[in-house]
Design a binder for these strands. Structure first.
Lengths: 83, 83
DNA sequence: CCGTGATGTCGGGATTTCAAGACAGGCGGG
DNA sequence: CCCGCCTGTCTTGAAATCCCGACATCACGG
């Protein structure tokens, strides 16, 4: 079976750094056709924070958790929930 | 092909709350045969923090990011990296 | 050329978070 | 009955974080 066109949008993102998380978030936001302002308001956070997130801003906590998972040999992935 | 015994340890965890993250982390830590103290030291964080994490402690940032993903219809999963 | 929307970026300050270190309880073995 | 180990929990203080509200830039259309 070949990859169907709609499958392209379902490719999972592997998250191992803050940068990859930002890339994924931006991807999904655009796919949803939302601006940063819209999504930020819907999710109840400030637009400047979302902007920084998408650019891969690394916060301490994120670093800590990713480090933890790395030490445990665990992989984190994001993918579109299909329903 | 049937599920082999070793596959049981590879069942992915679906993360949608801080609680499920804690459960997953604890699972993987035990699987690695580490105590909280050992893992905390390896990963460079305090044991009391790891303890709280495993119990599902919700920090603001975690809440924010999980909320964001929920609004985007994105699912987060953790699974053992096989290599 | 002007207006509009989207995004990057900055500073200030209130809030949150985490490390540190201590204490207590549980559990199992010797 | 003691130990040693593991884990949960608390307090404190220092540090990181994020909201807020600007301002700047860029692209686009009218």
């Amino acid at each position: 079976m070949q990859t169907s066109p709609s499958d392209r949008d379902r490719k999972p993102f592997r998250i191992y750094t803050a940068a990859s998380l930002g890339t994924a978030i931006r991807h999904y936001r655009k796919q949803a056709g939302l601006s940063q302002a819209e999504l930020a308001e819907q999710a109840g956070l400030h637009r400047s924070y979302l902007s920084a997130l998408e650019q891969g801003k690394e916060t301490e906590q994120m670093r800590r958790i990713l480090r933890l998972l790395r030490h445990l040999g665990v992989r984190m992935t994001l993918e579109q929930a299909d329903w």
